[in-house]
Simulated assay, not measured.
Amino acid sequence: MNLDLFDTLEPSDNRQQQLAQDAFVLRGFAIPYVPELLPALAAIQQAAPFRHLVTPGGLRMSVALTNCGRLGWTSDRHGYRYTATDPDSGRPWPAMPAVFLRLAQAAAAQAGFDAFMPDACLVNRYEPGTKLSLHQDKDEQDYNAPIVSVSLGIPALFQFGGHARSDKTERVPLFHGDVVVWGGVDRLRYHGVLPLKEGQHPLLGRQRINFTFRKAG
């Protein structure tokens, strides 16, 4: 699906969409987990508040981030990397809640990736106008494990490209509860999020929350 007019988007009735050989959108897959996900998110945010990281080039990221799990992804003038402790507090990142792990493993299995054991969950908070530039997830040591990305809150347009930044991208609308899983031959495809349109979600207000589960170590 490649749509230019985001304002016309509505949730799809197609419960599973294949983006590439080893890449899928699981429509509404996370909805049954939401009553447990949101309290768990609140506890993570209290222990490790959202923050705006700085790129190695000195640019402030518009998307706010925190982490949970054994490892957390971070960025500063010294580069992109995973750490076992929160640089802001010096304490270990909050443990990954059991409901997060259940959701990640169930979604991975649905997409054909059994025995997924993530040790990192990046939690991104998008507000209207924020975006995520095209990039590859390549700071992990294990490329055999998939990426599992969960969308909550207001809609977003996900860009899914090829193995070169210049490759054509597909625009994939994502809604509350949708999960994207990619791995295998598609593990290192470029992807990003276009600037969010204004919106209001009954549970999350003017924001989109994204959980990205990875096997980092």
Rank of each mutant, 00 (worst) to 15 (best):
S133P: 14
S89W: 05
D139E: 15
P56G: 13
F113V: 03
L101N: 12
R189A: 09
P155G: 06
V123D: 05
P155K: 06
L122N: 11
G90L: 07
D86K: 03
T74E: 06
G184W: 00
R102K: 14
V172K: 02
K168F: 01
F116G: 07
I147H: 01
F116A: 06
V150R: 01
M117F: 07
D186S: 11
A107G: 03
R81C: 12
L59P: 01
P146N: 06
C68I: 01
F100K: 04
D76A: 13
A164M: 10
L194T: 09
G153V: 05
D178S: 02
K138I: 15
F158K: 00
W73T: 12
R60T: 15
P56K: 07
G162I: 00
N144D: 14
C121K: 07
A108L: 01
N144G: 13
V148N: 03
A111K: 00
P56F: 04
I147Q: 07
Q159D: 05
C121W: 01
S151R: 05
P155S: 06
L122I: 15
R51K: 12
V180K: 00
T55C: 12
C121D: 08
R81F: 12
P94A: 06
A164N: 11
I154T: 03
H163E: 10
A109E: 09
L53P: 05
D86V: 09
F113L: 03
P97G: 05
V185T: 13
C121G: 09
P92I: 03
C121A: 13
S89T: 13
P49S: 14
G69L: 05
A106M: 09
D167W: 02
A120S: 14
I147A: 04
M61C: 02
Q110T: 06
Y82I: 14
P49K: 13
T66K: 02
G69C: 10
